[in-house]
Structures are given as C-alpha cells and as structure tokens.
Design a protein around this nucleic acid. Structure first.
Lengths: 197, 197
DNA sequence: CAAATTATAGTGATCGGTCTACATATTATA
DNA sequence: TATAATATGTAGACCGATCACTATAATTTG
C-alpha cells in the first residue's frame, strides 16, 4: 500500500487467478498481459525466465497465502475442530462470492498438470502440500495426538478438501465443500477422542 | 478383437492417456496423431468436430469404464466396505504399475480445466460424477442406509479419493491412496453402524 | 546522467483445423 | 461375373492464428 500498486504484484495476482482457473497451458501470456495491464516488456523484466518462472512464483505465493490462512484460523479459533471447519466454510464462501472463479489459491488441481511439465514446478507443488500438511498436523500434535496419527489425519483432511473442491468446481455447487466441513468435524472429534455432539 | 484393431479405439486410448496426464490444453492434436499413429485425416473423419468432440468422447468413455469397475467390484466383493477398499487398492496398484502416468481414467482433475472451456464439456464431467456417485450410494442404500446418508457418504468418499489422487500424483507416492482406503473403511464401518475391527 | 521500467514490433514454432488426393472396401447394375 | 458407383478410411500438405519469447527503443525515475 505504498501508494504505488506495484506492477509486479498485479501481474502475480492476475496470473494466479488465471492459472488456477484455466490451468497452465490454458493461460496465455497475452491474456495475463491484457488483464493485468502490464506490458510484455515489464513482464519479462520482472520474470526474465518467462512463463515457467511466473507460474513458479504464483505457486510459491499461494503456498504462503494459504499457510497464513491456516495459521490465522488456528490462532483465532482455539478449538482445532472448529478452526478447521471455519477454514473450510470460508473456502465455500469465497467460492460462492467469486462464482467459482476467484477462490484461488487453494484448489490444487493445477499441481497435477504442472507436475507433468518440469521438475522444478513439481518440486514447488510438493513443497506447498508439505507446508500445509505440516501446519495442520502441527496443530493436531499440540492437542496431544501422536505423530503418525496427526500426520495421517492431516493428510486425509487435505485429501477430502481438495477432492471436494474438484466436485464443487465441476458442479458449481458449494454443497460439496460444506459437506466436508461436517465430516471433517466428525473425523477430528473421533480422532481426538471426543464424544460426538 | 475382430482382428482389426479399430483405429478409432486406438485414438481414444491414446488421447485419453494424454488428456488425463497432461490436461486438455497441454495435449496437442499433433501429439495424439503421432503417438496413436493415426493420421490427421482419419482423426477428423472419426471426430469431425475436432479436439473438443474427441475430449468429450474420452470423458464419456472414462465414465463408462470406471462405472464398470465399480459395478464389478461390488459384484465380486459382497461386503461393501471391503469392496470400496478393494477398488481403492486397485487404483494404487495401477498408479504404481504405470508410474503415475497411465492410471487413467479415474483422476478427475481434468474436470476443472475442461469445465472452464465449454458448457458441453462441463456437462459431461458433471454427468460422470453423478453416475459414479449413483453407483456408490446405490450400493449403500442396499445396506439399509437412508437415502440422504447414503448420498452424503458416497460424496465424501469420492472427495477423499479424488483428493488423494491429487496428492499421490503430486508426490508420486501411492501412500496417500492407501491411506484413504484405510480411512474410508473406518468411515463406512461407522456409518453402517458396525463396531470397528 | 544512469538505472529502472515501459512499450512494441517482430521472431520462429506450434496450435487446431481445412483441404484435396488417394487407396481400399462394399454395393449396384449389366 | 465384370465393372461402375459409392462409401469408408488413409495420408499429409497447407492455412491463419496464436504461442512463448526476443530485441530494441522510448520513457520515467532517482
């Protein structure tokens, strides 16, 4: 907010939105240039290695943004089960509000596409998943879960959520996401040895 | 097996493999032509409306193939919980055997990409999900589950599985899939009111 | 001035798609 | 049965458009 809406950030914003909506190959540099109003010269000035570097930075950026979201919700909501549900409900709201087009940067299907393109992109995607899993399982560890169970639970949770996002985007219906919120709550309560409410 | 390895089927095979591995935009017609050894003239003879029609048929084909797999496993394995687990374990084996490149046609991330391309492709993808869900929830209904619970359980199951496939493909590790087999079993046993083994 | 940034014109390569020519079957007619 | 006519399928040259990317000049900024 330094008065100047840094051109570089604008490009990353636009590129992220488009990449996560249309995929890597489905998004042309010309489209990014047009929608971000950033001329080609600037784009290659900021990202001299071109499209792949741009995508890589978008992926890293989404890693940080989503990680911050997880940390934030775990800080604000003391109960980890409610925190996870809050996170998921927020996703559903974002999806609804943007008509399933802007609720970047969580839906991670692009990882599969980019994993087939280059090793560096695949490594970046692996790092994203690892980071998110680390945060979630870390919170569960703090509840006293043993390490393996915490890891497994976090993985299942992330699988559910990613899968639900695919169903939700395909059907343009947030019901699939909200359903996961409910079942994730059930699963977590059970794992944490609580009685069902 | 009529002696003549129909060229049309070969194209669908190759195209499906490539589409589900690289995505729609990431797969060029020239690549399909080269790898299937089917000349462009023949391709446009079989699929006069071009790439989109080809993708549509690949999607429909995968719908049928996977639906048959579900039906088959439910016929062969009487216990629905074990049947679901068997299905998931088969996915993991296929993934391993083909080095995460051929275990088409189940991973459904391409649905998100194609959903952004045209309404007919999106409709086709919706139909695929609906069909698979119908088969799974139908089997649960036969176990005496009430309709809403059966539907919800099937949706959660499919979400888990699709999400796990994303994690597995990104990390090139079937562990994520096998983990889902375990947790799907737990969830189904609970829903069906059984004691945990 | 010098560095940082913007602005475009233009590069070869590849994209999906069209077109025509040709080869091989199958059927129709005598 | 011989052959003409039609249908089926193969083969690839070619098209304009777009792709990611480069080169270089102009402009702004410190």
């Amino acid at each position: 907010m330094a008065g100047k809406p840094n051109s570089r950030e604008t490009v990353l914003d636009t590129a992220s939105k488009l990449f996560f909506k249309q995929g890597y190959h489905g998004t042309g540099l010309n489209q990014i240039i047009k929608e971000s109003c950033c001329p080609k010269g600037s784009l290659y000035y900021y990202f001299p290695e071109g499209k792949e570097e741009l995508a890589l930075q978008c992926i890293d950026r989404s890693k940080r943004i989503v990680a911050d979201k997880w940390k934030d919700v775990f800080e604000r909501v003391p109960d980890p089960v409610r925190a996870v549900q809050r996170f998921i409900e927020n996703m559903a709201e974002d999806a609804q509000a943007t008509d399933f087009e802007g609720f970047i940067p969580f839906s991670f299907w692009m990882a599969v596409e980019t994993s087939a393109i280059s090793d560096s992109l695949r490594a970046a995607c692996q790092s994203v998943l690892a980071e998110w899993l680390h945060i979630i399982s870390g919170r569960l560890l703090k509840e006293g879960l043993q390490e393996q169970l915490a890891t497994e639970t976090a993985e299942v949770l992330l699988s559910m959520l990613e899968g639900a996002l695919i169903l939700a985007q395909t059907n343009r219906d947030t019901r699939h996401i909200l359903l996961i919120s409910k079942y994730a709550g059930l699963m977590l309560n059970e794992v944490l040895g609580r009685s069902q409410t």
